[in-house]
Simulated assay, not measured.
Amino acid sequence: MQSPPEPTVEQKRHAVLAQRSRAYRLESDPLKLEAEYDAVIAGTEPDYSAWLAKVAEIKVRYPLPDQ
């Protein structure tokens, strides 16, 4: 029995981008929305530090394949 062909770099890239998109939606987007809401209520500039840290963490967790 022959094993399935290895995915192409473009297929791998597409899969990673889908994983990142899901993680952003579930993990980082709520942090950004909360920071913006809190800032509006307080009349200050948003503190995006938690959001930026989460986005960086997601990028490390789902690295793009080499071209």
Score class of each variant (00 low, 15 high):
Tyr62Gln: 12
Ile58Ala: 02
Tyr24Ile: 13
Leu64Ala: 06
Glu45Ile: 09
Val9Cys: 06
Glu57Ala: 13
Glu6Tyr: 06
Ala18Tyr: 01
Trp51Ser: 01
Glu27Asn: 05
Glu57Gly: 07
Val60Ile: 12
Pro46Tyr: 02
Val40Cys: 11
Ala18Leu: 15
Lys32Gln: 09
Arg22Cys: 03
Ala50His: 11
Pro30Leu: 10
Ala53Thr: 14
Ala50Asp: 11
Arg20Glu: 10
Pro46Thr: 01
Pro46Lys: 04
Glu57Ser: 12
Glu27Leu: 09
Pro46Gln: 06
Tyr24Asn: 02
Ala39Leu: 01
Pro7Arg: 04
Glu10Met: 10
Thr8Val: 07
Glu45Gly: 10
Arg20Thr: 09
Tyr62Ala: 11
Ala53Ser: 14
Gly43Phe: 04
Lys32Thr: 00
Lys54Gly: 01
Pro5Ile: 07
Lys54Thr: 01
Glu45Cys: 12
Glu10Asp: 14
Trp51Thr: 02
Glu34Leu: 13
Leu52His: 14
Ala23Ile: 10
Val60His: 12
Asp38Phe: 00
Ser21Met: 03
Pro63Val: 13
Ala53Ile: 10
Glu57Cys: 03
Pro63Asp: 10
Ile41Asp: 04
Thr8Trp: 06
Trp51Gln: 05
Ala23His: 00
Val60Ala: 12
Ala39Ile: 02
Tyr62Asn: 05
Gln11Ser: 06
Arg25Pro: 01
Pro5Phe: 09
Arg25Ala: 15
Lys12Ile: 04
Glu36Ser: 07
Leu26Met: 13
Glu45Trp: 08
Arg25Gly: 03
Tyr62Met: 11
Pro7Thr: 00
Leu17Thr: 09
Thr44Val: 07
Trp51Met: 11
Tyr37Thr: 14
Leu64Ser: 08
Arg22Tyr: 08
Thr44Met: 04
Glu57Thr: 04
Lys54Ser: 06
Leu33His: 14
Leu31Val: 05
Leu31His: 05
Val9Pro: 01
Arg13Asn: 05
Ala18Cys: 09
Lys54Gln: 10
Lys54Cys: 09
Ile58Lys: 04
Pro63Phe: 12
Ile41Thr: 11
Lys54Ile: 01
Ser21Asp: 10
Pro63Glu: 13
Val60Leu: 13
Tyr37Ser: 15
Ala42Val: 03
Tyr24Pro: 07
Arg61Pro: 05
Gly43Leu: 07
Gly43Pro: 06
Ala53Lys: 15
Val40Glu: 15
Glu57Met: 07
Ala18Arg: 14
Gln11Leu: 12
Ala18His: 07
Asp47His: 05
Thr44Lys: 13
Gly43Asn: 04
Ala50Trp: 00
Val55Leu: 10
Thr8Leu: 08
Arg61Asp: 03
Pro5Thr: 13
Ile58Ser: 05
Tyr24Ala: 03
Ser21Glu: 08
Ala42Leu: 11
Thr44Leu: 04
Pro46Asp: 03
Val60Asn: 08
Leu17Glu: 14
Gln19Thr: 08
Lys12Thr: 02
Pro46Ser: 02
Arg13Ile: 08
Glu45Lys: 15
Val55Trp: 02
Leu26Ser: 12
Asp38Pro: 00
Lys32Ser: 06
Val40Leu: 15
Gly43Val: 07
Arg13Gln: 12
Val60Ser: 09
Val60Gln: 14
Lys12Trp: 02
